[in-house]
């Protein structure tokens, strides 16, 4: 009894977090799960429909298209984004003083840029005929590419924007990891005759393991929820989204369209729940791989 009483201050201290977590995280997840089995327009009494929302989604052309786009997007943007961020972190780490600070800030700038501004800049860069990229292509005698309307290039155009934005954030985290690697390890490696590449492969990468794990997991989770960049790049609205032939249609966009464009909140909830399951599954896979690597 007295031991329970002695924990009261601890419970009180975590209470604000628990209350906020329950109200803004747990409750929406659980209510979303509940509504996913109902036909609900957000206002009227929900009508139980069993698994109908899930069946409808899984049979929907837009759902398959959005999921396929997501698979392609994640499988490119996560590795490329991390490689670029790692390269930038190594580059910035090699500078000292004012230059290090300058490059760190310069690469971080896209992270703090509002999404609509970034999208406007990139729409101009990608504009056919006289956009910056097409002007450069023109100098080499290459034909104009319609980056945001050609279904063959649209996803790569999005990935480039995403890497540009996310690299700065990942770079800062990796840079913090680099600074924590003891200099003696590099000194010892140099004395043993290791070149720069060998130092990166045999010291930097293994020592960054936990940080890299965080960056990979975070990048996958962010990529699964991609929404604002493709929405803005394709000039989407609740009634028309995803760009030409749905080449930039992603699950969160489709979910928003079903919720606010068609007021089918039950279906949108089922969508959200499937996406949450996918995110949890992929996160568990990354944790599993990490454990397996540690054991082996």
């Amino acid at each position: 009894m007295s031991s329970q009483r002695s924990h009261v201050p601890h419970y009180l201290m975590i209470a604000p977090f628990v209350v906020l977590f329950a109200a803004f995280f747990l409750y929406p997840i659980l209510s979303g799960f509940y509504y996913s089995f109902h036909d609900w327009n957000g206002v009227e009494v929900p009508r139980f429909v069993g698994l109908a929302n899930y069946e409808k989604l899984l049979g929907s052309r837009d759902f398959s298209r959005a999921m396929w786009n997501l698979v392609v997007y994640i499988s490119i943007t996560v590795p490329v984004g991390i490689l670029v961020a790692f390269g930038l972190a190594l580059l910035v780490d090699s500078f000292t003083g004012r230059w290090a600070s300058f490059f760190r800030n310069a690469y971080f700038l896209p992270v703090v840029l509002p999404a609509f501004l970034a999208a406007t800049i990139w729409r101009w860069i990608y504009a056919p005929n006289f956009g910056l990229l097409n002007m450069i292509l023109g100098w080499f005698g290459l034909p104009s590419v319609n980056f945001l309307n050609d279904t063959g290039t649209m996803i790569y155009a999005l990935i480039a924007v995403d890497v540009w934005v996310s690299a700065g954030f990942n770079m800062v985290i990796l840079l913090a990891g680099l600074k924590n690697i003891p200099a003696e390890l590099y000194e010892a490696a140099r004395l043993d005759g290791a070149n720069k590449w060998q130092q990166i492969v045999h010291i930097t990468v293994p020592m960054l393991g936990p940080i890299m794990f965080f960056v990979i997991t975070y990048s996958i989770i962010s990529a699964m929820q991609v929404f604002d960049k493709p929405w803005l790049l394709t000039g989407s609205s609740f009634s028309e989204y995803g760009g030409r032939r749905g080449a930039l249609l992603f699950p969160v966009m489709d979910m928003m369209g079903r919720a606010f464009g068609e007021v089918r909140f039950g279906e949108a909830s089922a969508y959200g729940f499937l996406l949450t399951l996918a995110i949890v599954f992929l996160t568990m896979v990354t944790f599993g791989i990490r454990k397996w690597r540690e054991r082996s």
């Binding site: 406007t120 504009a127 005929n129 006289f130 104009s144 309307n149 000039g235």
Partner: peptide, 19 residues
């Protein structure tokens, strides 16, 4: 056609620049 949609800023730019 120009490859841009009627809503794109690029379309207005093409129009204003006599293209």
């Amino acid at each position: 056609n120009s490859g841009t949609s009627r809503n794109d800023q690029a379309t207005k730019d093409l129009f204003v620049t006599d293209q």
